[in-house]
């Protein structure tokens, strides 16, 4: 049971963190919870589909379908996160002021919410498909004794949900006027990490073969597969053996997001000192 719990929890970590960050980032946008819930449900349904078609996906594109599929959905997530950050930079100030008419915020925030719901859906889908396959395997091989394992898996899911809540509540401790800045920076790092992961899948598929040498190997110090490694992997894109190309893509993504955000930000005005 413990093994199942650990495996499932491990997979849920990434999705859990992403959901927590997105929840915090969209806190003051009306209707955001509903969109995020849609994202989660969509992700769960999607993972079942991916699990069912796992074999077909793997065999597509002469055997590298899994890698290309992963790279493609990661790329979509990177674009959506970048877009959200740019959008936030240009409208964030209005949203931060919670006294503004909520309806206006909803209307303006909808597109950005769709983008983030998609990101949540993708995070859930990627982790979810593996969980579905793993639990399915338990059910068909172990039959009766599989119940304890299923319970373990369920507890793992609950723990993942707890991690979401913890991330969310932790971020809420940040004063509202700083929250946007903090979540924007977190989302930028999240996006850069995902871009580096997408690069990894393209490398694995043999699509790109330049700069493939390992930039560093810190697997002995902090394994990417350990819990802390996984958390850092999600939050800042930590990798214990990145290739030079991954490193380049990571830094490039950060730079592009930074420049885009600056380009679209309204001209800085002198902020009046506010009582909170």
């Amino acid at each position: 049971m413990l093994a199942a719990l650990i495996i499932v929890f491990r997979e849920v970590v990434e999705a859990g963190l992403v959901v927590g960050i997105v929840l915090a980032a969209t806190r003051s946008v009306g209707g955001s919870r509903l969109w995020i819930a849609f994202g989660i449900v969509g992700g769960v349904l999607g993972s079942c589909l991916v699990a069912i078609f796992a074999s077909a996906i793997a065999n597509a594109f002469s055997g590298v379908g899994q890698e290309l599929f992963n790279a493609a959905i990661l790329a979509v997530a990177v674009v959506m996160l970048t877009w959200h950050n740019v959008w936030m930079a240009s409208h964030g100030r209005e949203l931060a002021n919670e006294l503004k008419a909520a309806s206006e915020a909803v209307a303006r925030g909808r597109k950005s919410l769709l983008a983030l719901a998609l990101v949540v859906g993708i995070a859930v889908l990627r982790e979810g498909a593996e969980i579905v396959l793993f639990l399915y395997g338990i059910v068909i091989t172990d039959g009766g004794s599989g119940l304890a394992l299923l319970l373990g898996g369920f507890l793992g899911l609950v723990l993942g949900g707890g991690l979401s809540a913890l991330t969310y509540l932790g971020l809420l401790r940040i004063p509202a006027r700083h929250l946007f800045k903090v979540t924007s920076v977190m989302i930028a790092f999240l996006a850069a990490g995902l871009a580096a992961q997408a690069t990894f899948f393209l490398e694995q598929a043999g699509v790109v073969e330049i700069l493939g040498d390992t930039a560093w190997d810190t697997s002995a110090i902090l394994s990417e597969k350990s819990l802390l490694g996984r958390v850092l992997h999600t939050l800042v894109g930590y990798s214990d053996q990145p290739s030079f190309l991954q490193l380049l893509v990571y830094l490039g993504a950060l730079l592009v997001i930074y420049l885009l955000t600056r380009a679209f930000a309204p001209a800085p005005t002198v902020e009046p000192v506010r009582q909170s």
Partner: peptide, 18 residues
């Protein structure tokens, strides 16, 4: 019958095998 995940940390492969 059960799916597997063929994985290696050493040579960086992680693939689901239904």
């Amino acid at each position: 019958d059960a799916p597997a995940e063929f994985e290696s940390k050493d040579f960086k492969v992680e693939k689901i095998v239904a």
